[in-house]
Design a protein around this nucleic acid. Structure first.
Lengths: 194, 194
DNA sequence: AGATAATATATACACTGGAAACATTTGATC
DNA sequence: GATCAAATGTTTCCAGTGTATATATTATCT
């Protein structure tokens, strides 16, 4: 880094990755414009050109998070997976991701820190939502047959797995409870009747 | 308030209520030691004597939040409620509370801002958990009969209703989806088979 | 080459939580 | 009642935060 250039060249991407690193290493409270900028070696006002403000940077980081979450939910799937395999992978991957990246997960689902209408963010959320749609198909819930049975099952699946992940991260499920249930064992098989 | 006394007399309680008001009126981002202290008319370092630091104040506020949530989950119950009425009231009350107090709800379930081991906080969480236990009794899930079937049903109930509430607050369920489902209509009757 | 836009810096400001020293009041003990 | 210790608040200061403004540097396009 002898000849440090005035223009970084790929600052936008570098800042997002710096943010992801900070979230992974430290936590959400240590993620700031200044820590991100410092890690990249740039002044703390440089991000403004690419993200507008803190909200914009956080939104971009959260969007990347949803992409990673979608990856996680498809990880380890065989070539032509059965519907049951898709469901198991999706639910296991969801909780796995939350536990592996708690700070990022918290940012992704916090209400005021990100901009909901952001296209990249909505795309990431949409990718996850699509996986959950596939994972929830042909679930024989009680109200199956109702006009919006599929959407209903999809939202219930998402609620169930997300609520479980969040309660886990928030420490609301004590160790006895989770151990008795087998945590990851209970998740993919939430009592759904195939 | 002519003769303003040096000692407030009930500062601890006043600060908690000020915090609840700020959360209700403005939002989590506007809640600070200084805004709380200013609302009570006291210096911004006064809270230290009662709560130690910001974390302590937030923990106390969150604990109060769980008490309010427990109230909400029992609101409007008749004298000798049926199990179905208990369940409906608990689930409706849970989502109702989240929508009525989104900022407080976010604080209550955020990971790093509060101290998990705090006795008052644990008591509040315990009260809610107990209501959920009652609301989940005799649920005929697939794995009913297993040694920990009841705890399992309890955790699933909590995950389901909490996940739904959080996804709602985070704006992940678009209006078409929630409208198609009837939101509060779907909550108390999540496909449980009585 | 020269104008213009994009990108990064420098500086200043209001805000935050917390540490330290000090002031005031309360309450217990003699 | 006087006295001394503990509890309760204030004052002052500091490092850290996001952002607005003005400025400097580079890239791009005609």
């Amino acid at each position: 880094m002898r000849d440090k250039k005035y223009h970084h060249g790929n600052l936008k991407e570098a800042l997002i990755e710096a943010g992801l690193e900070i979230l992974s290493e430290s936590g959400l409270s240590d993620l700031s414009l200044r820590t991100c900028a410092a890690r990249v070696g740039v002044s703390h006002t440089a991000p403004k050109n690419h993200f507008g403000n803190m909200n914009g940077l956080l939104t971009a980081i959260a969007a990347r998070g949803y992409e990673q979450l979608a990856e996680h939910m498809r990880r380890g799937l065989p070539e032509n997976p059965t519907r049951h395999e898709v469901r198991n992978a999706a639910f296991e991957g969801y909780v796995d991701f939350a536990r592996a990246q708690p700070a990022l997960f918290e940012l992704m689902y916090s209400s005021g820190r990100t901009t909901r209408d952001d296209p990249a963010l909505k795309a990431g959320v949409g990718a996850c939502f699509e996986i959950l749609r596939e994972a929830s198909m042909n679930l024989d819930w009680d109200k199956a047959g109702a006009p919006d049975a599929e959407l209903r099952a999809q939202i219930m699946s998402w609620s169930l797995v997300h609520g479980f992940a969040q309660l886990l991260l928030a420490g609301k499920l004590d160790k006895d409870a989770t151990k008795a249930l087998g945590v990851l064992d209970v998740v993919p098989d939430f009592g759904f009747r195939a």
